[in-house]
Design a protein around this nucleic acid. Structure first.
Lengths: 136, 136
DNA sequence: TATTAATCTACTAATTCTATAGGATAAATG
DNA sequence: CATTTATCCTATAGAATTAGTAGATTAATA
C-alpha cells in the first residue's frame, strides 16, 4: 500500500507544479485545496525541501515552491524520498541493497528471482514519468 | 516492502513445487529447509490451503502438498492471497476497488494516474509468471 | 515592532506485522 | 483401542510503522 505520506506528497508536488507563477504557496493553501491535514503536510513538505525538491520562504508572502522544472523531476527520485526503496526486498535494491539473513544463496532464491522482475517493471514506470507527466 | 508472510509463503510453495513426488511434506521439514519459524509458517500454510493452493493430510505421513501443477499457479493469485491487493491504492484496484474519501475527482488525480501505470506494470509481471517460473 | 508563516522537537493513538502458546482434531500404526 | 504423529484453530502479545497533534521557535516582511 502507498503511504498517506507519499500520496499527500505527490498531490502537493502536483499542486505546486500546476501553479502559474513561481510564487510561494502557503502550507494552509495546499492543505485546504488537497484535503490534507495541515500539520501532517507540514512535515512532508519539510522533508521535500530538505531533499532538494522544494524551496521555502518564511514570513508574510512565504510558502513553498518548486525548485526544478516539473519535467526534470523524476518519479524515481520522488518515490525514493517519500516511500522509500522501490524494490520490495532489500536483496534486489539498487540503492539500498542488503543481504537477506535467512537466505543462503541469492541466486537460488525464488523470491529474489520474482522480485527482480517486479523491481525492473516498477523502475521502468518511475523512470519514464516526471512530475510534468502527472499534471493532466 | 514485501511482508515476511509473503516471502515465506513463496518459499514454501517453491519448496513444495521442487519436490519430485506428490507426497505430503511436513511443516517442520519446510520450516527447517527454508529457515522459517515453524509456528509462523503453520499459519501461512493453513491460509494457502484454505485458498485452494495446498492440500493437507493429518497424522503420520501427513503434511502439505501442491494441489495444482506449478505451471497452473499464477503469481497474480498467489500474491493477492499472501500480500493482498496488487494495486498500491484502492482506487486503481481491479479486485478491491474503493473510492478515495479525500479525492473529489479520480480522473483529475495525479496519484491515481501514476498508480494506474504502476498497477499495470506489476500485473504484467505477475500474470506472466507461474510457480514453475520460480523454480530455477 | 507586530504579524505572518515556516521550522523543529516531542509525543500520542491506532494499526499492522511477526510471531508464540496451547489445546483440539484427525489419521495412521501396532 | 491406545499411542503417536501432525495438522487445525483461537487467542494473544510484543515490536514496528504510520498517521496525526501540540506547542514553542525562528525568520522575513511591512
Amino acid at each position: 500500500m502507498l503511504s498517506k505520506k507519499t500520496k499527500y506528497g505527490l498531490k502537493a508536488l502536483t499542486f505546486l507544479a500546476s501553479q502559474k507563477g513561481k510564487d510561494p504557496v502557503q502550507i494552509a493553501e495546499i492543505a485546504k485545496q488537497e484535503n490534507i491535514s495541515q500539520k501532517f503536510l507540514e512535515s512532508i513538505l519539510l522533508s521535500l525541501r530538505k531533499t532538494g525538491f522544494l524551496g521555502s520562504k518564511k514570513g508574510k508572502g512565504g510558502g513553498y515552491y518548486l525548485i526544478k522544472d516539473p519535467k526534470e523531476v523524476l518519479m524515481t527520485d520522488v518515490m525514493r524520498v517519500l516511500e522509500g526503496p522501490i524494490s520490495m526486498v532489500p536483496c534486489v535494491s539498487l540503492n539500498f541493497y542488503e543481504k537477506c539473513d535467512d537466505c543462503p544463496d541469492e541466486d537460488a532464491c525464488s523470491v529474489h528471482k520474482l522480485m527482480l522482475k517486479v523491481r525492473d517493471a516498477n523502475l521502468a514506470v518511475y523512470r519514464n514519468n516526471t512530475l510534468a507527466d502527472l499534471l493532466l
